Simulated scan of single mutants.
Amino acid sequence: MGILLVNALMMAGPYDLASVADPDASTLDRTVVGIVQALVAGKFYLMFSFLFGYSFTLQLDSAERAGARAVPRQLRRSFGLFLLGLLHAVLLYVGDILMTYAVLGLVLIAARNCSPRTALRAARIAYGCASTLLLLVGLASLLLSDAEAAELDAELAAELPALIASYRGDAASVVHANIGQLPDALLAVLPMGGFVLGAFLMGLHCGRRRLLTDTGIPRARLRRICLRGAALGLPGGLFMALAVSGPLGPRWTILGQMVGMVMASALTASYICAMLLLMRTARGARIAALLAPAGRMALTNYLSQSLVMALVFTGYGFALYDRLSPAVVVLGALVLYAAQLALSARLMARYRYGPAEWLLRAITLARLPHAPDRSATPR
């Protein structure tokens, strides 16, 4: 849901969550975008990355139980993810994350035999290096005067009418716009790479120690991480919202984005621990049961979200790009997520895999997954 909220605002127009402010945005628009920036943006792709690293350990165990070689399996899986990501970026949403996962997932394959302590140390190094670099870039941006920063924003804004026209055009113009933005999108992923890699390795560390099981982490420790993460992450998210969508001005935009990215992991850790605490309660168990079917077909839901939003916002369908307010977009995203929860429950009651999961599994195993994998852990 968190990824959907961010992607919906990114696909809805060129201003929301971007560094260029919408000159016609209302107070409600800025408030909605600010809330998403403070509480959501940058937090949930890290959670997804952490789970990607954690699940890697489960897949290694599955390959071992099946007597299969893990490395060829994982290389095929990375190829499948990259192919799906490339098609996703060209046809639907240029902000795809699957290609990044496919490439950085090769590091997980190389580190598959490392100890939990080594994985944790490597995660800290990756996070520290990425944080240092981004904070230096953000601080350097303060050397710009307000006039220079405003001039840069004006140059970026001058390119937006052509982009808006492309996404409101026919299918060919949408694909052309996506391809045209792909190099910049890939460059924008580079600052995230260190954090994604750090989250992968942290997931590898936790997966090796089985820390997400009921007996993995004591409740008291979960509470401490939850509170400390919120205490660190919320101010960082608030500063990003004030700098990008608030009153601080264009000179602070880059620093705000960098601080928000650096502090996002603290809030992500807080969210994860809060969810683990909740799911250990009776009410939380019911919530987990509601969410579980969508989690079993997360890849299908991720891709289908982009398909639905492309039909709504681009020339594939209604061409509402830059025509809906952020409040309407966020509300629509929540409705879409609720519909996916209901549909996922119906599908997972009848099938073992979602369509995209079935395809990726076929590529990973190099065979059709027509029958349940008897080596897999029952769920």
Rank of each mutant, 00 (worst) to 15 (best):
Asn7Pro: 03
Asn7Leu: 02
Val6Lys: 11
Leu28Phe: 04
Leu5Gly: 10
Val20Phe: 14
Leu5Ser: 09
Leu5Glu: 04
Leu4Val: 14
Thr31Arg: 02
Thr27Tyr: 02
Ala21Pro: 00
Gly13Asp: 05
Ser26Gly: 13
Ala18Ser: 13
Asp22Cys: 09
Ala12Lys: 03
Val32His: 07
Gly2Ser: 01
Met11Asp: 10
Ala12Thr: 06
Ser26Tyr: 03
Pro14Asn: 12
Leu5Cys: 06
Pro14Cys: 06
Leu17Ala: 13
Pro23Asp: 04
Ser19Gly: 03
Ala8Ile: 06
Leu4Gln: 12
Asp24Ile: 00
Asp16Ala: 15
Leu28Met: 05
Asp29Trp: 10
Leu4Asn: 14
Pro23Met: 02
Leu4Asp: 13
Ala18Val: 00
Ser19Met: 14
Thr31Asp: 05
Pro14Trp: 06
Asp29Glu: 04
Leu28Ser: 12
Leu4Glu: 12
Ala8Ser: 15
Ser26Gln: 02
Val33Pro: 04
Arg30Gly: 05
Leu9Ile: 10
Thr27Arg: 06
Thr27Met: 08
Leu17Tyr: 14
Asn7Trp: 02
Thr27Leu: 07
Leu5Met: 13
Val32Tyr: 04
Leu28Ile: 09
Asn7Gly: 03
Leu28Ala: 13
Leu5Ile: 07
Val33Ala: 05
Leu17Arg: 13
Ala21Thr: 14
Leu9Ser: 13
Pro14Ser: 15
Gly13Gln: 01
Ala25Thr: 06
Ala18Asn: 10
Ala25Asn: 10
Asn7Ser: 11
Asp16Met: 00
Ala21Glu: 12
Leu28Thr: 04
Leu4Cys: 11
Val33Glu: 13
Val20His: 12
Val20Arg: 13
Gly13Phe: 03
Gly2Asn: 05
Ile3Glu: 08
Val6Gln: 09
Asp29Ile: 02
Met10Ile: 09
Asp22Gln: 07
Val20Glu: 10
Val6Gly: 04
Asp24Asn: 10
Tyr15Pro: 01
Leu9Pro: 13
